[in-house]
Simulated scan of single mutants.
Amino acid sequence: MASFRYYTDGAATMIRKNGKYLREAGGWAFVLLIDNREDSVCSGGCPLTTNNEMELYAIYASMKDFLLKSESGDMVEICSDSSYCIDIFTKWAFNWQKKGWKKSDGKPIKNLKLIKAIWKLMANIKSKSCMLKFKKVKGHSSNQWNNKADELAGTAKNIAFKSGKTVYYGENDGLLGEKSNYVD
């Protein structure tokens, strides 16, 4: 039984123009440790996105990676410095699903397509008899793995900005790049 730990991070830039926020480029990344040894890194980006979308996509990519590399009974811990992401999957998503993927206040759930894709991967991890945990880590601190994921996401953001291309985990999964310029 192996222990997988993914440090995930996202980075994005938005600018204020005419009183509104405009989306710009972003990057996502993860650093994988298996049994406390660095195994691999992965990153990508999108020319038009938000920070939350990139944070979520890093989690999505890490779960896809885990499902490819793991065996039944393995353990996976997703470490993120985003309280928003951790809370979605540890506090809110279960009730959203029960209510037909609606929030209790009736407002739409942002990034729902990506959240539902992650929720499905979580079910796949469970059906593989693997244990999944989420862990909140402090961003921009002394955690070398979180800092490395942050650096990789920043580099991927710059590449997406310069190239104008979206880089997914593997093939185009349709989860990125569908946003308008303006933040809702």
Rank of each mutant, 00 (worst) to 15 (best):
A25L: 09
S83Q: 15
Y182D: 10
S72M: 10
G26V: 02
N147W: 02
I59V: 15
Y168M: 10
T50R: 04
K135A: 13
L56R: 03
V183C: 12
T90E: 11
K116R: 15
T155G: 08
G100Q: 02
I59A: 09
G100Y: 01
G139I: 00
F89E: 06
D81M: 03
G154C: 01
K135C: 15
K135G: 07
E55T: 11
L112G: 05
E171I: 02
E178Q: 12
R16K: 14
L132H: 05
S104N: 07
D35I: 10
Y57F: 10
F161K: 15
D87A: 12
T49S: 07
S141T: 10
S104Q: 10
S70Y: 06
I15W: 03
L22M: 14
A2S: 14
L68F: 11
I15C: 03
K17C: 11
R23C: 08
S72G: 11
M54E: 06
M63R: 01
G27L: 08
K102P: 07
A123F: 04
E55W: 08
L32V: 09
V167T: 14
Y57R: 00
T49W: 00
Q97G: 10
F66G: 03
N51R: 06
S40V: 11
C130D: 08
Y60H: 11
N124R: 15
Y6A: 01
W145V: 07
F4L: 00
L56K: 06
G26Y: 00
I78S: 02
S180A: 14
N172D: 15
